[in-house]
Every structure is written in structure tokens, then in C-alpha cells.
Amino acid sequence: MHMPYEWSPAPPHADPDWTLALWPYRSLLRRDFALFMGATAAIITLPLLTVLGTAVLWGLLPFFAIAFTGLWYALNVSYRRGEVLEELRVTADTAHLTRHNPKGPRQDWQANRYWVSVHLHPKGGPVDNYITLRGGDREVEIGAFLDAAERLALYDELKRALRG
């Protein structure tokens, strides 16, 4: 199963320096979005061909245009909201988490690598199997956009990676 995160270098890490990049799962890639919208336009156009040249066409056309525009807008907004990237860079001394939000400022967290601990909150968090990193004076979430099974797998991998 392909996970929506990537280790560099891949675990197990012989080197104390490594990076973990996480992103939300995309079921509809940009290329597929264009194909889907093209197919939708073709399907919407087919019934209009039967009324071509009549006044009924002008009655139906605005509704089809509104439906197509609404679908395009909704998918585009959903896609933009999912443009989140979290990067955890760990060196011999520090752990630095950066969250690149689709809107708004970048969020950063840094702690001494040796004091960083990974915590799993199976219930009671905003999502099941909620993962946090604790170090210094703050606790931050990581991978909240992943599904519950992906967060469990990530938790195990993070525990092993931070021990080494």
C-alpha cells in the first residue's frame, strides 16, 4: 500500500539526518480532474443536442452551465484545501517540523532531537489515532489529515526513526 508520506533516506536510517514529508491523499490528480471535467461537459452536452435549434435549448442551457460551473468550483476548492505539506527534518541535534498551509502563514516547531517524543492518542483527539510530537515547551500534531490506519503505521515508523 502506498502511503501519502515519504522518508528520505528510506528507513531504517543509518544516518542520523533524515526527512519525512507528509501530504493528504489525492484520489483525483490534476490530470484526472481535467479528464473528469471534459467527460462531464460531454455528458451534459449530449441531451442538449436533441433540443438544438429550439427555444428549449435556451431554457436548459443556463441550468447545465450552473451545474458544470458549480461542480468545477467545488472540486477546485476541495483540491486547494488539500494542498498541505508537512516536513519533519531531523538532524543529529534537532527536530524541525514545518507545516505549509494552503492559505495563511507557514507554521514551524523545533526541539532538541533527544527530548522529542511521539505520542499516540487513540481516542479523544480531533481524529482517531491522533499523533503528536512533544519536545521543548510545546506539543504539535503531525499527519492529522491522514486516515486512522495511515496514522497508526506512521506512529510506529516515527517511534523507530526517532529512537535511532
Rank of each mutant, 00 (worst) to 15 (best):
T91R: 10
V127K: 00
V84K: 07
A65V: 14
Y73A: 13
G82A: 13
T132N: 00
R99N: 00
A55Y: 08
G70Y: 14
F63G: 13
K123P: 00
V56D: 10
L49V: 11
L120A: 09
I131S: 01
A74H: 14
A41C: 03
V127H: 02
T94F: 13
W109Q: 03
L48Y: 09
L97G: 07
T50C: 08
R89I: 11
F68Y: 15
F64I: 05
L120N: 11
A95Q: 08
L48I: 10
V84D: 01
G124P: 05
D108G: 04
A42R: 01
D108R: 12
L49M: 15
P126L: 05
V51L: 07
A74L: 14
D108C: 06
P126H: 00
T54F: 04
V118P: 02
E83D: 13
H100K: 10
A55G: 13
L97E: 04
N112T: 12
L61Y: 11
H119W: 03
V51K: 08
L57R: 14
D108H: 12
S117N: 05
W109E: 00
V118D: 06
G59T: 10
V56N: 07
L49G: 07
L49R: 06
V84W: 06
A42H: 01
F68V: 06
Q107T: 09
V90H: 09
I43N: 05
G124I: 07
T45A: 15
R80V: 05
V77F: 03
W58E: 09
T69A: 15
P126E: 13
T45W: 15
P102K: 02
N129M: 05
I131V: 09
I44R: 05
W115F: 08
R80T: 03
P102G: 04
L60V: 11
W72S: 08
V116N: 03
W58S: 07
L60D: 04
P122T: 00
I43R: 00
Q107K: 10
L120K: 09
G124A: 04
W58H: 06
A67S: 13
T50L: 15
W115L: 08
I44P: 08
R81I: 01
V90M: 07
D108T: 06
A67H: 15
G82Q: 11
A42K: 04
K103T: 06
W58A: 10
E86Q: 12
G59A: 12
A95R: 13
V56I: 15
L60Y: 11
T54N: 08
T45P: 07
Y130D: 03
A55V: 08
K103V: 07
A65F: 14
A67N: 15
V90T: 04
A111I: 00
W115C: 02
N112E: 12
E83F: 02
S78Q: 12
R113S: 03
W109G: 01
F64N: 14
Y79H: 13
S117V: 01
E86C: 05
R99T: 02
L97Q: 02
E86I: 02
R113W: 11
S78A: 14
G104Q: 05
Y114S: 12
N101C: 05
D128T: 06
E87N: 10
V56W: 13
P47N: 08
V84G: 02
R113F: 05
N101P: 03
T45N: 10
W58Q: 03
G124N: 07
L120D: 10
A95G: 12
L52G: 11
P126N: 04
N112G: 12
H121G: 00
V127R: 02
A65E: 04
T50D: 14
